[in-house]
């Protein structure tokens, strides 16, 4: 799978941590990623909720050298090579088969089995992001059982931006309005909170 963006290095029912492969760009905060489970054949969908950059080797800590990244690459080439980017994705949906429309129904709930360490992770195509839309059941999980290390509203802003971008301008405001209605119900008509989120999406 040469186009894989990352590889899972920690896995649990709710979330997985993946290390971005050398030369690949890390997925954006709040974007959807997919994992084809090698053992079950299911496809898992996760939302990138946290990212980190740190030293690859345990016990080694990054330090300030006072040099630009280009200078570091030229004179201390190991420094950049020994850094790695990892991200945590919350598992929010799965499909009973391979990625794509032919892979069976898309369910916005946790999969029966956890993803496996060393499974590959890819960024989702816009059509997949569109498929992960109404009735937006995954938003309920995000709001009611948030990742404690992540500001929930900022994650919601990023998610709504992804929704808007995946549908494009031609779709108008309709997809966002539908997601906003779901959020409004989840927020118990806390309009101020909803408005704060929508302001940041525009």
């Amino acid at each position: 799978m040469p186009d894989a963006t990352a590889e899972i290095i920690e896995a649990s029912t709710r979330a997985f941590v993946a290390e971005v492969h050398d030369g690949q760009d890390a997925p954006a905060f709040g974007s959807w990623v997919e994992v084809e489970q090698s053992d079950t054949g299911h496809t898992l969908y996760g939302l990138v909720s946290h990212m980190e950059m740190s030293a690859r080797a345990p016990g080694r800590q990054a330090q300030a050298f006072g040099q630009s990244q280009e200078e570091l690459r030229k004179e201390r080439p190991q420094v950049m090579a020994l850094l790695r980017t990892t991200f945590r994705a919350q598992v929010l949906a799965y499909r009973d088969g391979p990625a794509g429309d032919d892979g069976g129904a898309l369910r916005q709930t946790l999969p029966p089995r956890l993803p496996s360490v060393h499974d590959f992770v890819r960024c989702c195509a816009p059509e997949t992001v569109r498929a992960l839309g109404a009735p937006y059941d995954f938003l309920r999980t995000l709001v009611q059982d948030p990742d404690p290390a992540v500001p929930t509203d900022d994650l919601l802003v990023a998610v709504l931006c992804q929704v808007r971008d995946a549908h494009g301008e031609a779709a108008g405001d309709e997809p966002l309005v539908e997601a906003g209605r779901t959020l409004s119900r989840l927020f118990d008509d806390d309009h101020e909170r909803l408005q704060s989120i929508l302001r940041r999406v525009e």
Binding site: K74, E75, P77, Q78, A81, L82
Partner: peptide
């Protein structure tokens, strides 16, 4: 095995 191509942006061997 370590190989550095100093002064370039080539990938190091580590």
């Amino acid at each position: 095995r370590v190989a550095f191509q100093y002064g370039t942006l080539e990938t190091p061997v580590l």
